[in-house]
Amino acid sequence: MSKLIANFLLAGAWAAAIQPFNAANLAVGFALGYIVLWVASPSDRESPYFKKVFKGIGFAFFTLKELVVANIKMAVWTVMPLKRLRPMILAVPIQEDLTDTEITILSSLITLTPGTLTMDVSENRRYLFIHFMHVDDPEEAKRDVAEGFQRRLLEVTR
């Protein structure tokens, strides 16, 4: 976490020194700051931060892709005959040891992605109750949520 803050500060310093202070210079500063941090911490090369940055960027792009797919799917569902839809409310098991933050991020992302809407978390934090717009196979839908989002999220946060 301190490495992440240091990296952002380095990016800010770079962009402030190399005018103008804009997104492109911030991105360059972030990349340079990453290299500086890597060079400057020979005793800490194993730090998970160096891998997490790439996973975080990958996760951001994955989320963006899902967001666009969600809207295309929703557009199709909005205009096609409603008879073809089969909505369901399913209890999707999640890992037991997720923190509050992770559950919040996970359920928000589920709401923003194709055809799913988080309704509630069970008291013992083992299940997310999700409304699906259209399900062919309930078991497969549950597996998709657990394998897809949960695994990718945990790669970044842990």
Binding site: L82, A91, M119, S122, R126, Y127, F129, P138
Partner: peptide, 24 residues
């Protein structure tokens, strides 16, 4: 048309807590 509702009966009417033990 909602084909399945697994949330059915999971809420405690009084306390609004959500039980999921029976799912296990």
């Amino acid at each position: 048309r909602t084909a399945r509702d697994e949330l059915e009966g999971c809420y405690d009417a009084e306390t609004h807590t959500l039980q999921s033990d029976h799912l296990d």
